[in-house]
Computed example of a mutant assay.
Amino acid sequence: MARRHDPHRRQRIIEAAVEVISESGLPALTHRTAAARADVPLGSTTYHFLSLDELLDAAVHTVAERNVARLRDWARSLPSDADLSTELASFIVLLAGEHRQTSVLAYELYGGALRRPALRAASTSWDEMLTDVFTSKVDVTTARALTALFNGLLFQALVSPGKPKHADLDQVLRRLLR
């Protein structure tokens, strides 16, 4: 078991929850599975998170913040004259390939908000953060549409049996961004 004084225990429990969901899906997460993965007593999880929804909310925020940080870094790295549809298509291919596990996890948590109202605020904040990033490149209305399209295209890329084709993604994105 972890040592008695552990100032990072709460964060370790959140990381453990993220790992459990990533490996086994949302239904696998319980206080007990998080405690076992974090190597802490079961009482630690219920001390830091009074309900499973609180733990899920923390996991959603953690995953969303990481994904948005990746998106912000991507947006900052773009040259001012970059072709946004081509760059977004490349980013979706990257997220569906190299970062597939994190992307699947994000959508698993996002989808969990359908049945768990306590997760909805964290899930909608993901959309707001995405729109905020896109607003740095396009107007607000287009950014909202781009958020919906980006989410849909990435989700389709993740559930499709084959690898996403850059040209197909670029074509759809280009239509919206015209």
Rank of each mutant, 00 (worst) to 15 (best):
M129N: 04
L169S: 11
N67M: 09
A34S: 09
S24Q: 11
Y107D: 05
N151L: 04
Q11L: 04
L146Q: 03
V104Q: 03
T141I: 01
E65D: 15
T45P: 11
E98I: 04
R72A: 14
R10A: 10
V104T: 04
A28P: 10
H8E: 05
D81R: 13
Y110I: 08
E128T: 07
S51Y: 05
R175W: 03
V133A: 02
L55P: 13
H31T: 08
F134C: 00
S51M: 03
F49N: 15
T33L: 01
P27H: 07
L176D: 10
S90M: 07
G152Q: 10
P164R: 13
L78F: 06
Q156M: 04
Y107R: 04
D139H: 04
L109D: 08
A106R: 09
L146P: 07
D127I: 02
W126V: 10
L71H: 09
T141C: 01
E98Y: 02
R70D: 14
S136F: 01
D6Q: 07
R178W: 00
P7F: 00
S22A: 12
P27T: 11
V138H: 00
E23M: 04
L55K: 13
A167I: 08
V93F: 01
R144W: 00
G25C: 08
S44A: 14
I14R: 08
T124M: 05
T124Y: 07
A148P: 11
E54P: 11
K137Y: 00
A34M: 07
E65I: 05
A122R: 02
R3L: 03
L94H: 14
T86I: 02
A82K: 13
Y107K: 04
A75R: 15
A69D: 14
D57Q: 11
A82C: 11
